[in-house]
Design a protein around this nucleic acid. Structure first.
Ligand SMILES: [Zn+2]
Ligand SMILES: [Zn+2]
Ligand SMILES: [Zn+2]
Ligand SMILES: [Zn+2]
Lengths: 165, 165
DNA sequence: CTGCATTATGTTACAATATAACATAACAAT
DNA sequence: ATTGTTATGTTATATTGTAACATAATGCAG
């Protein structure tokens, strides 16, 4: 399965391509896995992919409502649960927000670079990190189930003053 | 400055020692830095160190009240802010909970092993992780400000059935 | 197609976590 | 003592997330 661009997308990148790729991947993945990517879930996933910034659940709720859907908090949280369980979306717990997965279907653990200026998130997938973690854990007899790494800072574009927001 | 034990403490470890060491270190550090470790802050820090499990803000609030202090949410959150700003406490954002820092004064970034069974948290300080992160970030032109790594799993004692809870 | 089981969504109410805004108190230095 | 500063008290509210139960849609057996 093809992945989306892992790094920070430039202000003028073809984001429609990001969206359609993510949706197409999700559709294919769900089909293949026998998962029901319902209209609601598809809609939420598309809203999440509106940009590369993590989005809050209540923000999604508001947008769903604006799009004419009858929605309450559980509507959103259930869709998010489905999307997260199936690796299509990640939660950025340091922000209580959600972001589309750039490596959906890969079976990976998430590593995020979060720009404090533009709010954009890039997803890393550096195997070395997982390997160091596993080694450390092994030494302590700790069995790793999952982990998240959230890195805050300033992205290249923001340093250069070319961010899109 | 002496550090507390970095790994998962055993069920029968001398936890009073952990507490007194943490408090002593905090007092010394605040004195040296000209920081005001007030009665409230000291009290909150002590409550946080009641065990090696992260504790929620409202749990702290309840305990403060039980100890006779007039407290409301801001009371706790302000104390937590102070303690976090000064590296005496870390927030486990995947749990909305707070844990005493085992390396206070070291100027380090937090890395946590969180046992899903006993709830205990061990703080790692593996420089290799930071170094990999820095390298990855550099390649993308990303300047790292801070990061957190939260690793869930099962600790050694829980696997052996000797956890303290 | 029909009835039935399963899964998804709607709906209401509420729990849990965190902050805003302003008043009072404690503290530290003149 | 006076005064500016920092910390705490107090009230109210914002934000994030769930529980519980009702209804609707879907998939399938017969
Ligand atoms: Zn894009
Ligand atoms: Zn940026
Ligand atoms: Zn201890
Ligand atoms: Zn354990």
């Amino acid at each position: 399965m093809k992945t989306n661009n892992p790094a920070f997308p430039s202000a003028d990148h073809d984001h429609k391509h990001c969206v359609s790729l993510a949706l197409k991947n999700a559709e294919a993945y769900c089909l293949q896995q026998g998962l029901r990517l319902t209209k609601l879930r598809h809609q939420v996933l598309e809203l999440i992919w509106a940009n590369h910034q993590p989005v809050g659940a209540y923000e999604l709720l508001e947008q769903l409502t604006q799009e004419g859907r009858k929605a309450a908090p559980p509507t959103v949280y259930r869709a998010l649960d489905f999307l997260m369980e199936n690796g299509l979306v990640h939660r950025i717990s340091s922000r209580n927000a959600y972001v589309g997965c750039s490596h959906a279907g890969h079976d990976h653990t998430a590593q995020f670079l979060i720009c404090e200026t533009c709010g954009q998130v890039a997803e890393l997938d550096d195997a070395r990190i997982g390997s160091v973690i596993t080694k450390d854990a092994d030494q302590l007899g700790f069995t790793v189930a999952q982990w998240t790494l959230e890195i805050s800072g300033i992205c290249d574009q923001c340093k250069r003053g070319t961010a899109d927001e």
